[in-house]
Deep mutational scan, measured.
Amino acid sequence: TEKQERAIEYIRRLGYSEEEARRILKKANGNPDLAKEIARRIG
Score class of each variant (00 low, 15 high):
residue 3 K to T: 13
residue 2 E to T: 12
residue 35 A to N: 01
residue 34 L to G: 04
residue 13 R to L: 15
residue 35 A to E: 02
residue 27 K to H: 13
residue 12 R to C: 10
residue 7 A to S: 06
residue 29 N to A: 09
residue 22 R to G: 04
residue 21 A to D: 00
residue 43 G to T: 15
residue 12 R to L: 12
residue 35 A to Y: 03
residue 26 K to C: 08
residue 32 P to N: 04
residue 9 E to D: 14
residue 17 S to K: 04
residue 12 R to T: 14
residue 7 A to H: 03
residue 35 A to T: 02
residue 36 K to A: 08
residue 37 E to T: 11
residue 7 A to R: 02
residue 9 E to V: 05
residue 39 A to R: 02
residue 22 R to H: 10
residue 17 S to A: 04
residue 25 L to G: 00
residue 26 K to I: 12
residue 16 Y to M: 05
residue 21 A to I: 07
residue 13 R to Y: 11
residue 4 Q to A: 13
residue 31 N to W: 06
residue 28 A to W: 03
residue 36 K to T: 08
residue 24 I to R: 00
residue 11 I to M: 11
residue 31 N to T: 03
residue 32 P to I: 12
residue 19 E to Y: 11
residue 19 E to K: 09
residue 29 N to L: 11
residue 14 L to F: 06
residue 10 Y to S: 11
residue 4 Q to D: 09
residue 36 K to R: 11
residue 22 R to D: 05
residue 28 A to R: 01
residue 19 E to G: 08
residue 43 G to W: 13
residue 8 I to P: 02
residue 37 E to S: 11
residue 31 N to M: 07
residue 21 A to Q: 00
residue 9 E to P: 00
residue 32 P to Y: 07
residue 26 K to E: 14
residue 30 G to K: 04
residue 25 L to F: 05
residue 39 A to Y: 01
residue 39 A to I: 05
residue 1 T to M: 12
residue 42 I to R: 12
residue 17 S to P: 04
residue 14 L to W: 04
residue 32 P to M: 07
residue 8 I to S: 02
residue 12 R to H: 05
residue 30 G to D: 07
residue 39 A to F: 02
residue 28 A to F: 04
residue 8 I to N: 02
residue 2 E to H: 07
residue 37 E to A: 14
residue 32 P to H: 06
residue 17 S to F: 02
residue 26 K to V: 11
residue 36 K to S: 06
residue 29 N to W: 08
residue 6 R to V: 08
residue 8 I to K: 04
residue 41 R to G: 11
residue 19 E to H: 09
residue 6 R to G: 11
residue 40 R to F: 05
residue 17 S to Q: 03
residue 40 R to N: 09
residue 31 N to Q: 07
residue 42 I to S: 12
residue 32 P to G: 07
residue 12 R to N: 03
residue 35 A to G: 03
residue 27 K to F: 14
residue 31 N to D: 15
residue 37 E to W: 06
residue 41 R to D: 08
residue 6 R to L: 14
residue 34 L to C: 07
residue 22 R to A: 06
residue 5 E to G: 07
residue 34 L to P: 01
residue 21 A to V: 05
residue 27 K to M: 15
residue 6 R to I: 09
residue 39 A to S: 04
residue 14 L to E: 02
residue 1 T to W: 13
residue 15 G to R: 01
residue 27 K to N: 10
residue 36 K to L: 14
residue 25 L to D: 00
residue 33 D to R: 10
residue 17 S to W: 02
residue 22 R to W: 11
residue 26 K to M: 12
residue 38 I to Y: 05
residue 10 Y to M: 09
residue 35 A to W: 04
residue 26 K to F: 10
residue 16 Y to K: 02
residue 3 K to Y: 08
residue 21 A to S: 05
residue 33 D to W: 08
residue 10 Y to G: 06
residue 13 R to I: 09
residue 5 E to M: 14
residue 39 A to H: 02
residue 35 A to C: 05
residue 33 D to H: 10
residue 41 R to I: 11
residue 32 P to T: 09
residue 6 R to D: 15
residue 6 R to A: 15
residue 8 I to Y: 08
residue 30 G to I: 02
residue 24 I to F: 08
residue 27 K to C: 13
residue 34 L to D: 05
residue 35 A to H: 02
residue 34 L to W: 08
residue 41 R to Y: 06
residue 21 A to G: 03
residue 25 L to C: 03
residue 20 E to A: 09
residue 26 K to P: 00
residue 1 T to V: 12
residue 29 N to M: 12
residue 4 Q to S: 10
residue 10 Y to A: 14
residue 3 K to L: 15
residue 4 Q to R: 11
residue 18 E to V: 07
residue 3 K to Q: 15
residue 7 A to Y: 06
residue 8 I to E: 04
residue 25 L to P: 00
residue 8 I to A: 03
residue 40 R to M: 11
residue 25 L to H: 01
residue 39 A to D: 02
residue 39 A to K: 02
residue 41 R to S: 12
residue 37 E to H: 11
residue 2 E to K: 12
residue 39 A to C: 03
residue 20 E to D: 08
residue 29 N to Q: 11
residue 24 I to L: 07
residue 2 E to V: 10
residue 43 G to V: 15
residue 29 N to H: 11
residue 38 I to R: 05
residue 14 L to G: 01
residue 1 T to C: 08
residue 37 E to G: 07
residue 41 R to E: 10
residue 4 Q to T: 12
residue 31 N to P: 01
residue 15 G to L: 01
residue 5 E to C: 12
residue 8 I to C: 05
residue 36 K to Q: 09
residue 2 E to L: 06
residue 27 K to V: 14
residue 11 I to E: 00
residue 5 E to Q: 13
residue 17 S to V: 02
residue 34 L to Q: 07
residue 32 P to W: 07
residue 22 R to F: 08
residue 31 N to E: 07
residue 6 R to Q: 14
residue 25 L to Y: 05
residue 1 T to E: 11
residue 18 E to R: 06
residue 40 R to S: 10
residue 5 E to S: 10
residue 10 Y to L: 08
residue 19 E to M: 10
residue 27 K to W: 15
residue 38 I to H: 04
residue 30 G to S: 05
residue 30 G to Y: 12
residue 14 L to P: 00
residue 36 K to F: 10
residue 34 L to K: 09
residue 8 I to H: 03
residue 29 N to E: 10
residue 38 I to P: 01
residue 27 K to Q: 14
residue 20 E to L: 06
residue 43 G to F: 14
residue 30 G to Q: 06
residue 43 G to S: 15
residue 12 R to E: 10
residue 40 R to Y: 05
residue 38 I to W: 04
residue 13 R to A: 15
residue 15 G to N: 02
residue 28 A to N: 02
residue 15 G to E: 01
residue 14 L to S: 02
residue 32 P to K: 03
residue 6 R to F: 08
residue 43 G to H: 15
residue 43 G to I: 15
residue 43 G to E: 12
residue 36 K to G: 05
residue 24 I to Q: 01
residue 30 G to T: 03
residue 1 T to K: 14
residue 4 Q to K: 09
residue 41 R to F: 06
residue 15 G to T: 00
residue 17 S to G: 04
residue 30 G to C: 05
residue 23 R to G: 11
residue 13 R to V: 08
residue 9 E to W: 05
residue 2 E to I: 12
residue 4 Q to W: 13
residue 14 L to C: 07
residue 11 I to W: 04
residue 28 A to E: 01
residue 3 K to G: 13
residue 3 K to I: 13
residue 15 G to C: 04
residue 28 A to Q: 02
residue 37 E to D: 10
residue 24 I to Y: 03
residue 2 E to R: 13
residue 22 R to S: 05
residue 33 D to T: 11
residue 16 Y to S: 01
residue 38 I to D: 03
residue 10 Y to K: 06
residue 22 R to L: 10
residue 38 I to S: 03
residue 33 D to L: 08
residue 11 I to R: 00
residue 1 T to S: 13
residue 30 G to R: 04
residue 25 L to I: 07
residue 40 R to A: 09
